[in-house]
């Protein structure tokens, strides 16, 4: 979330591009192979899940899921 300098209104509703939660701080980003900055993410788990889309689609059998609890924003 980006608030105005006077704090009276919202300038940008900023969300994690994976889980969709509002991001109140800068958030996390990564740079892809083309040099594009991708984000924001609310946690390392979200970043990993986002990066793993293709691998999951091609996976045969169940997908092992890492725990997200210690990584999500409070």
């Amino acid at each position: 979330m980006k608030y105005s300098a006077n704090g009276l209104y919202v300038e940008e509703y900023r969300k994690c591009i994976n889980c969709g939660e509002l991001v109140y701080d800068e958030g996390l980003f990564f740079t892809d192979e083309d040099g594009t900055r991708i984000g924001p993410f609310s946690s390392a788990w979200d970043m990993e899940w986002y990066k793993g889309r293709e691998a999951r689609q091609n996976a045969k059998g169940p997908v092992l899921i890492k725990d997200w609890r210690s990584e999500t924003q409070s």
Partner: peptide, 18 residues
Amino acid sequence: FRPIKIVAPPGKLVNADF
């Protein structure tokens, strides 16, 4: 709710943008 994670990317019908 802790063992359940919801992935609802922004701009979708399930998480519309302002």
